[in-house]
Design a protein around this nucleic acid. Structure first.
Lengths: 71, 71
DNA sequence: ATATATAGTGCATTAAAACGCACTATATAT
DNA sequence: ATATATAGTGCGTTTTAATGCACTATATAT
């Protein structure tokens, strides 16, 4: 999953839930400035930051061997 | 995917490929010290670090809505 | 027993993530 | 037109990830 895709996924999920950046920042425990930077494509979030966002959004991070079978 | 699980997944993949930390560090472009910290459960890697390791190991990071259906 | 390969740690430095605050930009509603 | 809500940015500080180096720990082979 490319970085931009990851960002879009998070942003889409947040907007689908009708949650503002400000609320998500509160809910997740991630600083508002950090969230803004992330969603605007700047920065390089840590695993902890992604994890916090995932918890708040009902999303999960997985790291698995790439499937070469499917195209 | 919990942090420890993620670590184990990476470590298992590396060992399955018979690659040492030193070689993986070289192949991935991640510093050896950083890799050691990561695998020994210390630290909080950035997305870039995880991505680099993923590229070298043929693994992929994904971030998706948690499936509540399956248990 | 000792040489070798690999993993883990202590210590220090540098770069950058996380963060807050105040501000700007943009869209929407009144 | 202007007030309001939301997103994005500039600037600064604090914390910490990334890194190298030198060292220790452990297992394995000779």
């Amino acid at each position: 999953m490319h970085y931009e895709t990851l960002i879009e996924t998070v942003k889409a999920r947040r907007e689908m839930l009708n949650v503002t950046q400000e609320l998500l920042a509160d809910l997740s425990g991630v600083g508002l400035r950090t969230l803004k930077q992330f969603e605007s494509g700047k920065g390089n979030p840590t695993l902890e930051t992604l994890s916090k966002l995932g918890n708040a959004l009902g999303m999960e991070l997985t790291f698995a061997v790439k499937d070469v079978t499917a195209k």
